[in-house]
Every structure is written in structure tokens, then in C-alpha cells.
Write a protein that binds this DNA or RNA. Structure first.
Length: 926
DNA sequence: GGTGTCTGCCCC
DNA sequence: ATTCTGC
DNA sequence: GCAGAATGGGCAGACACC
């Protein structure tokens, strides 16, 4: 039996060097002296565990219980302990110090052995109740020498802090027993126990370890990449792009009923199913609603097992729920049926590690994906992760935006040639998240660190101002991450010099609120943790802003605007094109060919092309009465003037294209179908919504309409019309096959020029988009339009010239800034504000660009808002807090919106955005 | 029974 | 989770 | 490039205390 003191002494000498090879050597020498039983324990302890990884037991002892135990034995005040802890930064070091000062403990002889300690720790895990646990710890520490106590405390605190973890133990074992380190890692992964691995290595039995179903293996992890060039550099051979889901990483084991040898999982219909979390904890019972759907993946007559890697995601219908919803299901003793219904989940599989009796982790991702694709992964509860293969990064920005629009965090980019490397965080998997915004905040308090940061005030609480006018500071988060050691030292010294008040024995210092930091984060969420009512998810510091005075830090209003308080409401939407086509077919087959069908569509190229395609197809399939209507310049189907227009036609059935969807009926009593790609805000009764808002990537409306029509008849002769809408809305590089096909068929040049012409009519001062519709209806190709000499096309040409002239004038307008917003004011009868906004968005990527046009409609301001900042404009505008009233704004896309408001209301909006005071309206013609 | 504190190789 | 640092 | 260390927020459970 080896003594604990030897373990402690070895740990001391390992801690004394920073050289990894020396550490491994010292550890090897120690291991060499141990008998098998002690080697198991010693290896586990040095890896920082008490129990093997796959063991589900926990100790449930932390800093508070250790404080009680140590102060009892050393017979000191709690405050003395806390003072020491503040100074030393490690409860183990404190134990050593105070017990050395204690006569009884310092004179003890070492009696504890490794095995001895382990059985006491097992006992500790076995009892329940803080009191009994604390008294067990107290008795244990009472018979320990100061040095032994130091390491017992470190083990209980969960961290040895000697610059060595499990990986280094593997390394030491490999060196000692002269076997390849990869082999040791492999066996450790399979066994899930570094202790058992050590024994197998010593007795040259590493080959015996086999991958077994229902024994989880470690997960392959990804490295962060914020720069797409890294993708090009790392994966020149091609890569896969997948959504990064915000859920819980899970490994699913599914096996035939004959395998009854395992403790993990549960058997259903002769099939065993188990789920494991990233820390290899079994979470089968947390997600009981997934068991049966997963079991279905295996046909009853086979005994073949499966291991899948994926993510458990909270999802209702097509809508992905916030991660916090999912957390409500975690760590529960029992997950009740109500909770299962309140937070439905699905398992989204994106990798396969075992199938057909063979281990697949040595196969390249490309192969594994092919095998995964052969499974039936298409139910409500078990899905296949989105996966596309690329050769270059040109489409990645669009993929990223689409992933975000689906409610996911970002993208995963994976090397198609890479094998699955358990437990590794390599560059073969990259995660792309992109911070959404930054905040300038001021440090209000600093806390001393632990471990090597014990000498510094290394953790900073920071605040924002209540408002521009109210200087009260409200805390919003804490961080140290992102600072270099030098910066931590610098800020620490500054905080010491500017401390106003010390709390908790100097652990917390309230400091003068003067030092400004720029921080970033993944998301702002409502929270009771800080007095601002908000907290940051994954906060980190970008830089110290010594250039910025406290008066200029961000305000609570900014924070509110960044908070994700709104969600796409519970609207039933088709999850993909196939589902949408089914719905559309159904609608068409239920309509009578003699009914009056009315189509109201938007006036831009996307809307007009969508309307024309639908009109042509309806007529082609035998409908005799089809009317198209274009809304007035407000482009709002719910505006009274437009409603009147529709009513006047006395429709039997109404299609509303590219104009959004709200919960109020357009014409009460008239059945309506909305076809759209904006964020839906509700659905009226007696209506159908076909929206692509949740699809990936999001197509434009003319493309949706075209694709729907192909489901009922041949429409290929209208492909160029759809392409014009797509180019107008999404650009000529939009990631759709149809676009590429039409570009070769009609040439990109003609398509582009036709698009400009079709768009010109609604931008010109004498708003008349019906001309564009007429041109589309009377021509047969984009080339036909471009070369046409009809009066309508001539009209479009002169409209285009007019827009060009107006654009030249408006380009000279300079932005003014307030908070997150860059405002450009123009005065033009033409609808050029969206074009101007588009041109500024890339030049001001950190701002929300708002281009306000005061000359478009008399008495009104029409504005376009665009951003590349990642801030969701729909949420932003909704959170500005403009009271209800005349006009409308804040509909559309996450990063492209706008509105039309009476002048006074627009000025009210401006002042809420921080522009003050609003200037008088510009004189027309200026 | 309500509230506050501590804990989790928790989950991210 | 994120980030920096020493090997 | 990797492993180690030090740090964030939110949730449920278990208990202590009132």
C-alpha cells in the first residue's frame, strides 16, 4: 500500500516545474513504485478525478463545506480562513498553512494510504446531507498531516492545479510503459477510466480494450474561428458546412435486444437505447421522449448497434426554442409529462461513430456522412443535421445568415477528410459564431482571483449608464476573459489605487467607476443576477478604453435593444419546400376555376415577378378570372387604401405575395393565402401562410411562387421571371440552383439589366409598377425586354435615368450618429432610400444604417434600415419603445427593414434613438 | 412552507 | 462556454 | 497546435434556517 504522503510529495515536485517532460518523468517514477491497486487510484487522482470518468457518483462538497471543516480542525475563525484564501487563492494551500500553524496537525505522523483515502471518499459520496458530509470531511482532515490535507482538499475542490491533467497522465503512462501515447489515449477513451488504462498499459494488455456499445466515448470538439480565411487555410480539400445548434451535445447508443450486459440505458421493444452528455454523464432519463423514436432507427430483426453524435435541441414544430428552455429539463430527478410537452426536444444527428458492427471513427467524415445519410433520420423527434459540402468559402456568409435566421448560433465547418478524434479540440472542426455587438462599460468592482491570479484583482464587474440623462450605473456582467496577463496586472493595480470600499476581507473591492472597457458577448438576456435586469451570455473583454470617459459609455436602452425578448410567435409554418408544395397543391385543388382569384403583390421586382408568375400559372391551369393588384407607395396590404382596392374587385379568394403576414385579416371573411419570406407576425383566421422565413437559405418570394407552381404544372418558361425577383432581392450570387441555370440560359448580363428596368418603375417619382408587370407579361425573355422598343420599356428606361440622377444627389448626404444608429437624411420623390441604405451598410458595418426620405410621400417620412452589425433590426425597432400610432415600421427581415411614419412620429422615433433635437424638415428640392 | 445558499468532472 | 500562455 | 488554467450565466436539487 502506497502512502498518501508520497502522492503529495510527487505532486509538490510536479507543481514546482513548468516543464511538461519533467512532469511526465516525475509522474512515471512515482507510478513505477505503485502496486496495481494503487496505480489505479494514483492515476485517477493525478488526472484530477476521484471516480472514473464514466462513474456517475459525485462528492457534493465545495468551498463552503471545506471552510467549515478546516476552521473546525485548525480552531480558527472563519474570517481568518477567508483572509488566507483571498491571499493564497487555493483552499488546499490555505489548509496546508493553517494546519501547519496548528500544533496537533503539524505533529501528526502520516498514516493515510491511497486506498485508505479512496474508500473514505467513496463513503463521502455515499452519505447524504451537508452536515454528515462535512463531519466526514472533518474527521478525514483531522488525521491528515498538513501536506496530505492540502491534496485531499485539492481533490475535493476538484482541481489539483499542479499544471497537469489527464492528458499528461496519459503521456506519463506512455513513456513509462514504452507504448505509443495514441494507444493509451485510445484505450482511455474506450475504458473511460484512466486507472484501468494504467493497468492495461502496465500489463501490455492495451489491445484487449474494445469499443463497446453503451460505454460512451469522448466527443470530438471544435476550435473557434472568426475568420473565414482560416477555413481556406485549414481545409483546402473541401469541407462540410453545418448549422451550429444551441442545444446539448449528445451521444446516442442504440443496440439490439440481446445486449443485456450493460448498466446504461433502457430497453424498449427489445432495443436498448442510451444517451450521454459531453461529460459522459448518462442523460437517458432526462430525454425519455427520445427513447422510442431512437429505438425505431434499428429494425427489430437485427442485432446491429448504432452510435450517433449530435445535438439535443429544444424545438416546437419548425421553431427552435431558446437554450434556457432546454435547461429546465436538465438535472431533474424526474422529467414530468407536462415539462416534456412544454419543452419538446429533437435529436439532431450529425455524425455516426458505429454501425454494422464496425467502428467508424477512423473513416473520413465524408464516408461517415454517407452512412449517416442511409439512416431514416426524418421524424419529428429524430432529425438529420443540415450538411452541405463546399470547395470554397464564397457561399459561407449567406450560409451563416441563414443559420442565424433559423435560430441557430452559427456554423460548424468540418474537414471532409478528417477522422473522428475523440476528446480532441482540433482545427478539423471549426465553429463560426461571430459576436453580435459590443458594449462600452465601466468597471464598478473588482475581485481577487484564485490560483495563479490570487495576487491580483482579476475579475471585473462592469456597468452601463441608466440613460443619457441619468448617470446612475447599473451592473450588467463580469469578465476577465480576453485580457492578457499584463493587462490584468495593469487593471489590478489601477483598481487597488482606486478602491473606495473593501468587502469580504478584501476579496471584493468597490472601485471608482472610471475605467472603461469594451466588452462583447453572444447574447443579452433578461436576468436577476445584476441590478440592470440583464446579463450577458459568454462575456469577454475586447480592450481597455482609456480614451473614453464614463459619460460616454453605453446606456441601458442600448442593452434593451440588444436583448432578445421577442421570438417568432407560435405560427405553424411549412418547414421546407416539399411541405409548402403540398399545402399549395391543396389550395389550388380546392378552388373553383370560375371563382375570382385576386393577387395582391408587392411593387418591387420580387413582388411583381411573383405576381406575374402566379397570374400566368393560374390562367394556364384554367382559372378564368384572375386579377392582380399592386399596393400604393406604402406597400402595406393592410393600409385602408389598399384594402379598398382589393374589396372593389370582390375576390372569392385572395393571394397576398411578399407583403408579410399579420394576425389581422386583410379582408375579413375572404379566405387568403400569404406567400412570403419576411418574419411572420401572426396569421389571420381562415388563411394559410406559406413562408420561407425558417428555411435555409431563405429564398425570395418570386422563387417560392415559381417553385410552388412547378408542383402543379410546367412553369419552366417562366424561370427568368423568377430569376429577376431573386437577383433584385438577394443579389446575383444567391445560393439557388435556379439562378445558376437561368444565368447560363439567358446570360447574367441580360438578367441584371432587366432587373434594373423592372425595379425602376416603383422607384421613380410617378410610382407606376404596373408598367413593369405589363412588360413582364408581354415579353418572353430578359433579352427581349432589354432590346425592346415598346413604349412601356421606354418608360422604364426613363424611370431608370431619373433614379440615377436622384441617386447621384442623395449619395452626397452625410450620416449623423447616435448610439448604434447612423442616420442619413435625404429628400427625393424617388424610392431610393433602400438603395442608399444598402450602399452605406457595408461602409458602416457596426451601425444600423437608417436612410430617411422626407420627399417620398407628403407629410411622411419613409425610411430604410439595414445593418451588417448582426443586430436584429426587427427586434431593435420593436424595442425602441415608440408608442402605437399612425404609420407602420419594423416589418420585414432580420437585417433589413424600414417603415413609413408621419413626420412628427418619425421625429419622436429619432429622439428615442438619441438624435436630439430633430431638425426641421428639409425643403423639397434642396 | 418560504427563502437563501451551495453545488454541479452541470449545461452552455 | 471564452481566452491567454507556456511548452 | 496543444493542454492547462481561470474565468462567465442559468438552471434544478438539496439543505439550512426562519
Amino acid at each position: 500500500m502506497s502512502s498518501l504522503i508520497e502522492f503529495a510529495q510527487t505532486a509538490e515536485s510536479i507543481a514546482a516545474t513548468s516543464k511538461r517532460t519533467t512532469k511526465a518523468l516525475l509522474l512515471g517514477e512515482y507510478f513505477n513504485k505503485l502496486v496495481d491497486e494503487d496505480l489505479i487510484t494514483g492515476a485517477r487522482f493525478f488526472a484530477g478525478y476521484i471516480f472514473p470518468l464514466r462513474d456517475q457518483r459525485t462528492i457534493n462538497i465545495g468551498g463552503a463545506a471545506l471552510l467549515t471543516a478546516i476552521t473546525t480542525i485548525a480552531n480558527i475563525e472563519k474570517s481568518k480562513y477567508q483572509e488566507r484564501l483571498v491571499k493564497l487563492g487555493d483552499p488546499g494551500d490555505v489548509a496546508f498553512e493553517v494546519l501547519s500553524d496548528n500544533l496537533k496537525s503539524s505533529e501528526l505522523a502520516s498514516t493515510l494510504s491511497l486506498g485508505n483515502l479512496f474508500s473514505k471518499l467513496e463513503q463521502l459520496a455515499g452519505v447524504s446531507g451537508t452536515k454528515s458530509k462535512t463531519s466526514l470531511v472533518t474527521e478525514l482532515l483531522r488525521i491528515a498531516t498538513p501536506l496530505e490535507a492540502k491534496y485531499i482538499v485539492k481533490l475535493l475542490a476538484g482541481d489539483l492545479r499542479i499544471g497537469l491533467k489527464e492528458g499528461a497522465v496519459e503521456d506519463a503512462l506512455a513513456r513509462l510503459f514504452k507504448v505509443p501515447v495514441a494507444k493509451v489515449q485510445w484505450v482511455n477513451m474506450l475504458t473511460g477510466d484512466i486507472g484501468e488504462t494504467a493497468i492495461l498499459a502496465r500489463h501490455h494488455r492495451l489491445e484487449q480494450a474494445k469499443m463497446r456499445l453503451f460505454h460512451p466515448i469522448k466527443f470530438m470538439l471544435a476550435s473557434p474561428a472568426d475568420d473565414l480565411t482560416e477555413v481556406t487555410k485549414q481545409m483546402p480539400q473541401g469541407f462540410a458546412v453545418e448549422d451550429k445548434y444551441d442545444g446539448i451535445r449528445a451521444q446516442v447508443h442504440i443496440g439490439g435486444g440481446k445486449r443485456q450486459d450493460s448498466l446504461h440505458g433502457t430497453v424498449i421493444n427489445d432495443c436498448r437505447v442510451a444517451l450521454f452528455s459531453r461529460t459522459l454523464d448518462e442523460i437517458t432519463w432526462t430525454f425519455t421522449d427520445l427513447i422510442e423514436p431512437l429505438a425505431q432507427l434499428i429494425s427489430d430483426d437485427t442485432d446491429n448497434g448504432l452510435i450517433l453524435d449530435g445535438e439535443i435541441v429544444p424545438i416546437r414544430g419548425a421553431k427552435i426554442l431558446p437554450f434556457q428552455e432546454l435547461q429546465k429539463r436538465l438535472g431533474r430527478k424526474q422529467v414530468k409529462q407536462e415539462l416534456i410537452e412544454e419543452v419538446p426536444v429533437a435529436f439532431i444527428a450529425y455524425d455516426i461513430l458505429y454501425a454494422n458492427n464496425s467502428v467508424l471513427i477512423e473513416e473520413p467524415l465524408k464516408e461517415r456522412r454517407t452512412i449517416l445519410d442511409s439512416l431514416r433520420l426524418d421524424t419529428e423527434k429524430v432529425k438529420r443535421g443540415l450538411h452541405k459540402q463546399f470547395d470554397d468559402i464564397s457561399g459561407l456568409d449567406a450560409e451563416f445568415a441563414a443559420a442565424r435566421a433559423r435560430g441557430n448560433e452559427g456554423l460548424m465547418v468540418k474537414d471532409l477528410n478528417s477522422t473522428y478524434k475523440p476528446g480532441r479540440r482540433g482545427k478539423e472542426w471549426l465553429k463560426i459564431k461571430r459576436a453580435i455587438a459590443t458594449l462600452d462599460v465601466v468597471i464598478t468592482a473588482a475581485e481577487v482571483g484564485t490560483g495563479k491570479r490570487a495576487r491580483f484583482l482579476s475579475d471585473y464587474t462592469f456597468a452601463v449608464r441608466q440613460s443619457e440623462t441619468e448617470p446612475t450605473l447599473l451592473n450588467i456582467g463580469k469578465a476577465y476573459s480576453g485580457l492578457t496577463d499584463a493587462e490584468v496586472t495593469e487593471i489590478s493595480n489601477w483598481c487597488r489605487a482606486h478602491t473606495i470600499q473593501e468587502l469580504e476581507h478584501g476579496r471584493v473591492c468597490i472601485v471608482e467607476p472610471k475605467l472603461v472597457l469594451e466588452v462583447t458577448f453572444d447574447r443579452v438576456q433578461p436576468s436577476s443576477r445584476h441590478n440592470s435586469g440583464f446579463a450577458l451570455r459568454f462575456p469577454r473583454i475586447l480592450r481597455i478604453r482609456t480614451d473614453k470617459p464614463v459619460e460616454e459609455i453605453d446606456t441601458l436602452e442600448t442593452v434593451q435593444s440588444l436583448a432578445e425578448t421577442t421570438h417568432v410567435n407560435e405560427i405553424n409554418v411549412p418547414p421546407n419546400l416539399e411541405a409548402a408544395q403540398e399545402i399549395f397543391k391543396n389550395i389550388i385543388s380546392n378552388l373553383d376555376k370560375n371563382q375570382h382569384i385576386v393577387i395582391m403583390h408587392d411593387s418591387d421586382a420580387d413582388g411583381v415577378t411573383a405576381g406575374v408568375i402566379l397570374q400566368k400559372i393560374l390562367q394556364r391551369t384554367g382559372f378564368v378570372q384572375v386579377t392582380r393588384i399592386i399596393p400604393d407607395r406604402e406597400r402595406n396590404a393592410w393600409a385602408p387604401s389598399n384594402r379598398d382596392k382589393i374589396k372593389a374587385t370582390a375576390p372569392d379568394y385572395l393571394f397576398v405575395l411578399d407583403l408579410g403576414c399579420q394576425s389581422e385579416p386583410v379582408i375579413p371573411g375572404i379566405p387568403t393565402c400569404f406567400i412570403d419570406h419576411h418574419r411572420p407576425e401572426g396569421t389571420p383566421p381562415n388563411s394559410t401562410l406559406i413562408t420561407a422565413y425558417t428555411w435555409a437559405p431563405i429564398p425570395n418570394t418570386s422563387l417560392i411562387v415559381y417553385s410552388l407552381c412547378t408542383a402543379i404544372t410546367d412553369a419552366t418558361d417562366l424561370d427568368w421571371i423568377a430569376a429577376i425577383g431573386t437577383i433584385s432581392d438577394l443579389g446575383e450570387k444567391a445560393p439557388f440552383e435556379m439562378l445558376a441555370v437561368t444565368k447560363t440560359k439567358y446570360t447574367a448580363k441580360y438578367l441584371k439589366e432587366a432587373t434594373t428596368l423592372i425595379n425602376a418603375s416603383r422607384r421613380a417619382a410617378d410610382y407606376n409598377p404596373e408598367i413593369s408587370a405589363k412588360v413582364l407579361l408581354t415579353h418572353n425573355s430578359p433579352r427581349d425586354i432589354v432590346n425592346s422598343t415598346t413604349p412601356e420599356v421606354e418608360q422604364l428606361r426613363s424611370a431608370r435615368e431619373q433614379v440615377k440622377v436622384e441617386m447621384e444627389k442623395a449619395r452626397k448626404a452625410a450620416p449623423t450618429f447616435a448610439g448604434l444608429v447612423a442616420l442619413i437624411r435625404i429628400n427625393s420623390p424617388c424610392q431610393i432610400h433602400p438603395l442608399i441604405a444598402q450602399s452605406w451598410r457595408t461602409r458602416l458595418p457596426k451601425y444600423i444604417v437608417i436612410v430617411a426620405n422626407e420627399g417620398y410621400l407628403p407629410g411622411k417620412v419613409n425610411f430604410s434600415a439595414r445593418t451588417d452589425s448582426g443586430i436584429n433590426i426587427l427586434d431593435f425597432l420593436r424595442n425602441v419603445g415608440l408608442p402605437e400610432g399612425e404609420g407602420s415600421y419594423g416589418h420585414g427581415h432580420d437585417f433589413a427593414s424600414g417603415g413609413s411614419l408621419p413626420i412628427t412620429r418619425f421625429y419622436e422615433l429619432l429622439s428615442k434613438l438619441g438624435f436630439d433635437p430633430p431638425q426641421p424638415p428639409l425643403i423639397s428640392g434642396e
